[in-house]
């Protein structure tokens, strides 16, 4: 008797949890992902300031980050289904 009531309670809790996740967490997750991508773009812009025509005081110190950032950009536009991206010289 007690055991059945307990398992029903647990099942109900799970349903509430799932509903909560669907309504709140998924949305939050999406927001977080978007924020992460935005921060990543900021980083890319900071390291590649000179391609935007802005002087970068630490250009030399961050030189070795450039291949990684171009690589990430390349993976991204291919995931998005574009074979080539940007003017020649931006990516490929």
């Amino acid at each position: 008797m007690f055991a059945r009531a307990w398992s029903r309670l647990v099942a109900a809790w799970r349903r509430v949890e799932a509903g909560h996740d669907e309504v709140f967490v998924a949305r939050w997750r999406q927001g977080l992902r978007r924020e992460a991508r935005r921060q990543e773009d900021t980083m890319r812009a900071l390291v590649m300031l000179e391609s935007l025509g802005v002087d970068n005081p630490v250009a030399y110190e961050t030189l070795e980050l450039i291949p990684h950032l171009v690589g990430e950009l390349h993976e991204w536009h291919q995931r998005m289904g574009q074979e080539t991206f940007g003017d020649p010289g931006v990516c490929c």
Partner: peptide, 12 residues
């Protein structure tokens, strides 16, 4: 593109 970005950066 990597080479171009690197060359731009060294002109800073």
């Amino acid at each position: 593109a990597v080479r171009r970005h690197l060359e731009l950066a060294t002109d800073s």
